[in-house]
């Protein structure tokens, strides 16, 4: 083999490697989600509803579950849990709710992002129904009760006796609003379209981009 063919072959391989690594950079995005589920990084919980199969309730054990609501300063809603803390037996199906009120004079869309601490407990916190699976639209000055149904997996490691579930409520009105007439909103709508393209392509959990995509 002459040197220039050898060179070309090697260059081809190396370029392939570089392109492959560029792709790998993006592959890290879904890979990260998988690792988050497995290792409990950042306390990410299940993004779609799980079905509850009747199981043996471990009555010998009580786990505290705490609910925290985070409303960033830019989100003018009132949002909070009905009860802040409850004691549950692992395996027991629990129903609770959060309350939200839109204090402004305009229709707004909110998206709650859950996070469980300690992160290693997140995999054992299973939601069969959650308002965080969808975005929430509230009319001006309207209130809503947002249901949450969950159970704690009986396999929860012994050393975890408190699970804290936090919801951060984000204002995604701008991304969602498609009826506004202003230039700004039009631009934002264009952004939204692209957004859904990307979320679809990279299978991000960006359920806010399209109505009905489950989180």
């Amino acid at each position: 083999m002459s040197q220039s063919t050898q060179n070309r072959k090697l260059i081809g391989l190396l370029l392939l490697g570089a392109v492959g690594m560029f792709g790998f950079g993006f592959a890290l995005v879904p890979l990260y989600d998988v690792l988050c589920d497995a290792l409990g990084i950042n306390g990410k919980t299940n993004e779609t509803a799980v079905t509850y199969k009747p199981m043996e309730v471990d009555t010998s054990r009580l786990v505290s579950v705490e609910f925290v609501a985070m409303v960033p300063g830019k989100m003018p809603w009132e949002f909070g849990p009905e009860v802040k803390r409850m004691q549950v037996h692992p395996g027991e199906l629990i129903r609770t709710k959060f309350l939200a009120t839109n204090n402004t004079g305009a229709t707004m869309v909110g998206q709650a992002i859950p996070s469980v601490s300690p992160g290693t407990g997140a995999a054992y916190f299973n939601k069969t129904e959650c308002f965080c699976f969808n975005q929430q639209t509230l009319m001006a000055h309207a209130s809503a009760e947002l249901p949450l149904i969950f159970y704690v997996d009986p396999d929860l490691p012994e050393e975890i006796n408190t699970l804290t579930l936090s919801y951060t409520l984000f204002d995604i009105t701008v991304q969602m609003d498609s009826t506004g007439g202003s230039e700004q909103v039009k631009q934002d709508n264009q952004k939204t379209t692209k957004h859904s393209d990307f979320t679809a392509r990279y299978s991000l959990g960006g359920g806010n981009a399209e109505q009905g995509v489950a989180r």
């Binding site: 952004k191 939204t192 957004h195 990307f198 979320t199 960006g206 359920g207 806010n208």
Partner: peptide, 12 residues
């Protein structure tokens, strides 16, 4: 371009 790789509000 309004993707949400790193934006928690969009699932990132």
């Amino acid at each position: 371009f309004a993707t949400s790789f790193f934006d928690a509000a969009g699932g990132g």
